[in-house]
Computed example of a mutant assay.
Amino acid sequence: MRNPFEKEDHTGLIVGVAVGVAAGISLGWLFLTDKGAQYRRQLSRKFKETVSDKAADLIDKKTFVPKKMAKVATDAVVKD
């Protein structure tokens, strides 16, 4: 039989609600404000630049194509 006076542990629920609230506020700021739109554009450019660099490095390592030529090709594929 279960002890009716034993407290239940709700820390998982509290942490989950806190993470959900923080994510909601962050997404709301990113998508509903002008400053958030600017930040999204910056993140997008940085992400595309990083992907292009990593792809050029991989092409350089795995093929005989030099990194400069691979970078030109990956920049063409990953457009702004």
Rank of each mutant, 00 (worst) to 15 (best):
26 S>L: 13
23 A>F: 06
41 R>G: 08
26 S>A: 14
47 F>K: 09
48 K>I: 05
28 G>N: 10
49 E>L: 13
35 K>R: 12
18 A>D: 09
37 A>T: 08
16 G>M: 03
32 L>H: 14
16 G>C: 01
48 K>W: 02
16 G>H: 03
16 G>K: 01
40 R>C: 05
17 V>Q: 06
33 T>K: 08
44 S>D: 14
49 E>H: 13
25 I>G: 11
41 R>N: 13
46 K>N: 09
29 W>K: 09
43 L>R: 15
38 Q>V: 03
19 V>I: 14
37 A>V: 04
47 F>Q: 07
45 R>H: 12
24 G>N: 03
38 Q>L: 06
34 D>H: 05
37 A>K: 10
27 L>Y: 12
16 G>Y: 02
20 G>E: 02
16 G>N: 04
48 K>E: 05
20 G>K: 01
24 G>S: 04
37 A>H: 10
15 V>N: 04
43 L>C: 12
50 T>L: 03
48 K>G: 03
46 K>I: 09
25 I>Y: 15
39 Y>N: 12
23 A>T: 03
46 K>M: 14
45 R>A: 12
31 F>P: 00
40 R>A: 07
28 G>S: 10
26 S>V: 09
20 G>I: 01
16 G>W: 02
41 R>F: 11
46 K>G: 08
49 E>M: 09
14 I>G: 00
45 R>W: 04
33 T>E: 07
49 E>N: 12
38 Q>Y: 01
34 D>L: 05
45 R>G: 02
31 F>E: 07
40 R>P: 00
20 G>H: 02
42 Q>C: 02
40 R>V: 11
24 G>K: 01
29 W>P: 00
28 G>C: 05
47 F>P: 00
16 G>Q: 02
22 A>N: 03
14 I>P: 00
48 K>R: 10
46 K>T: 11
35 K>M: 07
37 A>I: 03
27 L>S: 06
48 K>C: 02
40 R>F: 05
34 D>T: 08
18 A>T: 07
25 I>L: 15
22 A>G: 10
50 T>D: 04
19 V>C: 08
46 K>P: 00
38 Q>A: 09
35 K>A: 12
42 Q>F: 11
35 K>P: 00
25 I>R: 10
28 G>R: 04
